[in-house]
């Protein structure tokens, strides 16, 4: 039987055009950032940013990597924090979400409310600082980058929805075969919720990878500086020199420091690895995005 090729309708053309425009809106800014990171600073000031550098220059990357040990150390810290933090965070998220997904769990409602409440209110910056420093003694340790971010209530609710999507009959038949709760979780719940786990894992990876604030407040040891904080400090330093060149009375001329091109180079260095991670999680990501809207 011959397949007739359907002619594109006006509405499909409009829809595709809109989607292509949206894709370009997402991709083109990053292309601009990439191009600007390889541009000469003076050319950037004179001609602005463009899709191709007017004058090619690696000065921004040279400045960022002038102390390669620092960058490598920061990458190491960030990778360690991200890997360990993701594993622990995911484990706890799954362990909390699974019982919350069970209809026969008695404390389902109060626990859900307790989690939800923390999304609305928290103690504030000063109590958090005091708690982490004086009571938990996490100040200036690598665990301060991991432990405070271990539970994200939003991720718990996303996982809960995925676990709720597993047919109850599967659990019931597992119980009949003598399975306990741990077996049901790891042999039935988790394998059937891969999309949710991948989505939540990606969110957690992004959370740990992009975290600057925690290090800013709770770290002093330069060996514990994560990547985002290091890059943030570089950019802040350049801006400080430019704003306070007279006050500081230093020998550094602000014009010698790459400013805009350095910021773009920081973006590329910081987000580059995430591009590879995202491509790995992509097929699960779309399904996971709409998870919060679904309920059995």
């Amino acid at each position: 039987m011959m397949m007739h090729k359907r002619k594109p309708t006006l509405s499909s053309i409009v829809i595709y055009a809109a989607l292509i425009a949206f894709v370009l809106f997402c991709i083109l800014p990053f292309a601009l950032v990439l191009s600007s990171s390889f541009s000469d600073e003076e050319a950037l000031k004179e001609y602005g940013i463009g899709f191709f550098p007017r004058e090619f220059s690696l000065e921004a990357y040279r400045y960022a990597f002038q102390y390669p040990d620092d960058i490598l150390n920061a990458y190491g810290v960030t990778v360690f924090v991200t890997v360990v933090g993701t594993v622990l965070n995911l484990l706890l998220t799954v362990l909390i979400a699974y019982p919350l997904s069970k209809q026969d769990f008695r404390w389902r409602r109060p626990m859900s409310f307790y989690l939800f409440f923390t999304m609305l209110f928290n103690g504030g910056l000063v109590p958090t600082y005091l708690l982490l420093k004086n009571y938990l003694h996490l100040y200036d340790t690598i665990w301060v980058l991991i432990l405070p971010l271990l539970i994200v209530p939003g991720n718990v609710f996303i996982m809960r929805v995925f676990f709720q999507g597993v047919p109850r009959s599967l659990y019931e038949s597992a119980v009949i075969d003598g399975a306990g709760e741990w077996t049901m979780l790891f042999r039935i719940g988790i394998p059937l919720s891969k999309a949710g786990i991948a989505t939540v894992t990606f969110f957690i990876i992004l959370l740990y990878w992009n975290d600057t604030f925690t290090g800013l407040l709770f770290l002093e040891d330069p060996k514990l500086t994560p990547l985002q904080l290091l890059l943030n400090q570089l950019v802040n330093y350049v801006q400080y020199v430019q704003q306070n060149a007279v006050v500081s009375g230093g020998m550094i001329s602000a014009a010698d420091l790459p400013d805009k091109s350095l910021m773009f180079a920081m973006c590329v260095i910081a987000t580059g690895p995430m591009l590879f991670v995202f491509s790995f999680f992509q097929k699960y990501f779309v399904r996971g995005l709409t998870a919060g809207a679904l309920k059995e």
């Binding site: 000031k45 430019q242 060149a245 001329s253 602000a254 014009a255 010698d256 400013d259």
Partner: peptide
């Protein structure tokens, strides 16, 4: 462009 450009003391 004094507000946005970096002033070069050496020049």
């Amino acid at each position: 462009d004094a507000l946005t450009a970096a002033f070069d003391f050496s020049k």
